[in-house]
Design a protein around this nucleic acid. Structure first.
Ligand SMILES: [Mn+2]
Ligand SMILES: [Mn+2]
Ligand SMILES: [Mn+2]
Ligand SMILES: [Mn+2]
Lengths: 218, 218
DNA sequence: CTTTTATTTTAGGCAAAGCTAAAAATTATT
DNA sequence: AATAATTTTTAGCTTTGCCTAAAATAAAAG
């Protein structure tokens, strides 16, 4: 197991996010990384020499098996650290991402294993995203958008999209958290907003809020 | 509060370790960092431009007030993370230093504050070294070398020097830990080794072991 | 099937951080 | 005080990682 720079790891993670095992265009990667295309061309050339990606000039970049393995291990660390920050240190789920962006680059298998156990061997992070296992297996991606249910359904919130600070703020002010259960009271034929009900009352959720909140039938 | 590179922070920490607020020679710094003198000359020039150090060519480098503040904040993080790794994740005290060397560079005041509280506002790290306070104040440096006590004294181990893996291994096999209490049974006039006694028996400690173990009268 | 537009790569620069080898300054020794 | 030994600095090179501007290629439009 060689050791990689933070920049390299960020490229690998971006590639995994954008394409999984499929090719990704130079432009998309540049956008995601926040660098210019020319920098990306260079960077992926370096990654190619380390057999982390296959590069076809003008066509796209694709993670190798080795690259995918690395991507998952970084994602595992990212999501474990987010879990630590929320569960143990009491951070809000909107605050943890930038911190995990740093912590995910700490290198130590031993540390990851111990952290995992310390957190109670979690399968999902504070946003409900699956935490890759040691061996690279992925737990299920949970839930479907709230808008996909029908009136009368009893649902439990299991995942939220990372849709920016304002979205998380809105969740907070509406007191919506993972694990909350609601009944679908109504779905507006006009604007697709949804009325959720619980023991404490009911409220309406806009379509764009609903699109970023995932639930399962409970 | 600007943000610093890992390399910069390591230079600052090395300067604090070697000289505190006093000047440090290029050679000593190079040795500590593990780089060549020429690289160090360049590096401290950069630090000088950021007002973290004062450089007098051919004479030495000295931390500024700002540099000292930074050094302490890094040391605080280093020791808090070591405490976390030992107290919460169950690492051995010989394993944590290299990990803390990475974790100390994570930037977030909020994280440090929360970690500090989570750990129970500790004043000393797992080796007994003082953890700088938020404001830069230093808790006392505890204890004196075991060889400094006289026969009959009741002592409690409060600190150990970082004298390498073999030293820590020896501590482990002898089951010596912070907080342990002993009676000084004898001090050899021949080789300055010390006989320590407890309820479970007694044993001899070599002079070089004693020199790296610090205790207080209890 | 050209021509225009958009994307990607090349070429040339720059800063951080390291290296080696040579020059300069300091310190130690006759 | 002069010379020898040690330490420090300069000069010149390397790699990573990012930039801008220009050239090359691919994709879209006419
Ligand atoms: Mn995240
Ligand atoms: Mn990252
Ligand atoms: Mn340490
Ligand atoms: Mn460090």
């Amino acid at each position: 197991m060689k050791t990689h720079t933070e920049s390299e790891e960020n490229y690998i993670k971006a590639l995994y996010h954008l394409g999984g095992d499929q090719p990704v265009s130079n432009g998309d990667l540049a956008q995601r990384i926040g660098a210019k295309g020319s920098s990306v061309t260079q960077a992926v050339k370096r990654l190619g020499q380390k057999d982390l990606v296959n590069v076809v000039p003008y066509k796209g970049v694709q993670l190798t098996q080795q690259g995918i393995r690395l991507a998952k291990s970084i994602l595992r660390k990212h999501r474990l650290w987010e879990t630590f920050l929320v569960d143990k240190l009491g951070f809000g789920w909107d605050e943890v991402h930038p911190l995990a962006e740093q912590l995910e680059h700490i290198q130590s298998e031993e540390l990851v294993d111990r952290l995992f156990k310390f957190l109670g061997s979690p399968k999902h992070d504070p946003h409900g995203d699956p935490i890759p296992e040691r061996d690279g297996q992925m737990p299920p991606v949970l839930g479907q958008p709230i808008g996909a249910f029908t009136t009368g359904a009893e649902i439990r919130i299991v995942r939220v999209e990372d849709a920016g600070t304002e979205f998380f703020d809105q969740l907070e002010t509406m007191n919506i958290n993972l694990g909350n259960t609601y009944e679908i009271r109504a779905i507006s034929a006009f604007d697709s907003s949804v009325e959720l009900g619980s023991s404490t009352g009911s409220f309406w959720l806009s379509q764009s809020m609903c699109a970023n909140i995932y639930a399962i039938q409970s």
